[in-house]
């Protein structure tokens, strides 16, 4: 795909469990020298009918390098689905969602956009990337809703960060769903707070167990330290100390 990002499509001999947008999988890394822990990767797309899910994996270290090197027919051990997903509006509840992703953080927004669409809503996407070549899955997003882009390099869409795009301050949108690098999410959360817009962010704190046992991936929330893996990874910004 874009630079150093691979789409992994997984299936299973048994029917996959139901999954919600925003949930993630913990993937075991096999036979890589010195690498021990699983890697948490958010669910990019899921089709119960095809018994298939896809993940976007960005190569950042030895574990993700192994994942990115998997080929058709290879077996990957995954524990899933983990965590709570995005808070979807109830059926029939009005919602004008703006889905904001940065870099490989756009991954869970495709599954989310499709679910929102299934509910009869019209999701709009704002995708941020370093440069045009790093804008991921643009065609897939365009099949689901309107797509706006920002690039730091300025060779696609508006130059700058997602917070520089005028659509972010368009009063039409009443809900932000955000996934990307933490500084980007904090910046969007501040805008949401200023506008009074409902805002959920998906965190990716470094984690070990993925099921709320080891207490490593905690976020300092208004209720104290809570596990991102179990209580999140998606949080309403009201719970966080970001704004």
């Amino acid at each position: 795909m874009g630079t150093s990002v691979v789409r992994l499509v997984l299936t299973a001999p048994d029917p996959l469990p139901a999954m919600r947008p925003g949930q993630f999988a913990e993937l075991r890394i096999d036979d890589v020298k010195d690498v021990l822990l699983r890697r948490p990767i958010s669910i990019h797309d899921f089709c119960a009918g095809d018994n298939e899910l896809s993940l976007l994996v960005q190569q950042v270290g030895k574990g993700t390098e192994w994942l990115c090197g998997r080929r058709e027919g290879d077996v990957v051990n995954a524990v899933l689905p983990l965590g709570n997903g995005f808070g979807l509006p109830a059926d029939g509840e009005p919602c004008a969602p703006l889905l904001i992703g940065g870099g490989v953080g756009v991954a869970p927004l495709l599954f989310l956009g499709k679910e929102l669409r299934r509910k009869g809503l019209a999701p709009t996407f704002l995708l941020g990337a370093r440069a045009a070549k790093d804008v991921l899955c643009r065609e897939q997003f365009e099949e689901v809703g309107d797509v706006y882009v920002t690039t730091e390099k300025g060779d696609d869409g508006v130059q700058g960060f997602v917070t520089d795009h005028p659509v972010l301050r368009d009063r039409r949108y009443d809900s932000f769903f955000v996934c990307g690098p933490k500084p980007m999410m904090v910046a969007v959360a501040k805008v949401a707070d200023e506008l009074g817009t409902r805002c959920e962010v998906s965190l990716e704190n470094r984690m070990a167990c993925g099921i709320g046992a080891c207490l490593c991936c905690v976020e300092d929330t208004k209720e104290g330290n809570v596990c991102v893996c179990k209580e999140g990874p998606v949080f309403n910004i009201n719970r966080l100390r970001w704004t």
Binding site: D34, L37, N205, R206, A208, L215, C216, E219, D220, N225
Partner: peptide
């Protein structure tokens, strides 16, 4: 409350917490 994040680092064939 425990210690502030980050609380974990993977190391060769091990982890620090």
């Amino acid at each position: 409350e425990g210690n502030p994040y980050p609380r974990m680092a993977e190391t060769p064939s091990g982890m620090l917490n």
